[in-house]
Simulated scan of single mutants.
Amino acid sequence: MISVLVVHGDRKTQRMLGRAITSGFGPAVLCDDLETAMAAVNGRTYAVVTAELAAHPNLPALVAALRAGGGDLLLCGEIGPPEVAALLRAHAIDHVVTTDPIASADELPLTLRTLARPDGLDSRGVERYLGYDVHLTELSPESTHGRITVLSAIRDGLAAMGIAARHERHAALIADELLANAIHDAPHGPDPALRDSVRDVDRPLAGRDRPRLRWGADGRMLAIEVTDQFGSLDAATIRTHLAKLADRSTRPRQGNGGAGLGLAMAFLAATQLVFHLCPGRFTQAIGLIDLRSRPDGGRTLVPSLHIFTERGRAIDGC
């Protein structure tokens, strides 16, 4: 039995969030504070906690209680860069929803459905974020410098669809950086001494070394997915590098080592950045751009982040 808690001191906000996530889960349990939420944790429980409670001293205890039962915490609301950095570092939060309320009405239930799947994570990727029967374009570089050809094809496709130039720029940046990580860093894992140190030399890609990129758009969302067949990226690495960018206390390293500047730049270019991690088998990174968003000045400073990790359950294709 899966239960969902909504934690916020304002009843109107509770009801709004509760209605957004009710589909597929039954009525959400509405809680005024973290203490009430702690008492309501029962087995596999997921809690949607609003940003006002992000710094509450009882938040770590709630996260621990949720994860002990196989659940997790989703933090949502207007959260600034320093707060996000602290959450990623101190509490290892894997789900931060910073989109506006209209977008959250889509994002929250989809995230909960992915977490609650009885057979584990779903590796279908971008299909989960786009409308039914949207055409997806699949591309795969034949060499390390083949990224240039892939990016050119994406730009041409977006231009043919009439996608705004600023969204086109963000999409190209996300695709380039995620492909770079998949090509140069994924094969060698966390050991910087083994990573590809000669990136300016073109070399062929074949078999397991050749990542796959898929992209599509439905007028609401533009989605770019990059999958490698190594599964060497872990949640702790993602959180570490994104926390550095969020609080601007440390510049991500610009040399070899992966998941540094490239991952951080992809994060800033997206509306949401989603990872499906299957250790030793594959890493799937998805950058989502909300085509309904206002001009650049109206964007949230920190995009939403979701990290789904296989924890001993079967995954399609894993």
Rank of each mutant, 00 (worst) to 15 (best):
S3V: 03
V6M: 05
R11Y: 12
K12M: 14
R19Q: 13
A20I: 01
I21N: 04
I21E: 01
A28Q: 06
D32I: 09
T36V: 09
T36I: 05
A37W: 06
A40Q: 13
V41R: 06
V48F: 05
A51L: 09
E52R: 15
A55M: 14
A55I: 08
P57I: 00
P57G: 05
L62I: 06
R67C: 04
A68C: 13
G70C: 04
L75V: 08
L75N: 08
I79K: 02
A85P: 02
L88H: 08
H91S: 12
H95L: 05
V97Y: 10
V97R: 02
T98Y: 08
P101M: 10
A103T: 04
A105W: 01
D106A: 12
L108A: 10
L115F: 05
R128H: 11
Y132S: 14
E138Y: 03
L139A: 00
P141G: 04
E142C: 10
T149S: 14
T149Y: 07
I154Y: 00
D156M: 13
L158P: 05
I163E: 14
A164E: 09
R169S: 11
A171E: 11
H188F: 15
G189V: 08
G189F: 02
P192M: 03
V201L: 15
V201P: 07
R203N: 12
R203F: 15
P204I: 02
L213S: 00
D218C: 11
G219K: 03
R220D: 11
L222E: 11
V226K: 00
F230R: 03
G231A: 09
S232T: 14
S232V: 01
D234M: 10
A236F: 11
I238W: 02
H241K: 04
L245P: 02
L245G: 14
S249T: 15
R251K: 15
P252W: 05
Q254K: 12
G258Y: 03
A259L: 07
G262E: 06
A264Q: 02
M265A: 15
T271F: 01
L273S: 08
H276N: 12
L277A: 06
P279K: 10
R281Y: 09
T283Y: 05
A285M: 12
R294E: 14
P295I: 05
R299H: 10
P303W: 01
S304R: 00
R311D: 13
R311Y: 09
G317K: 07
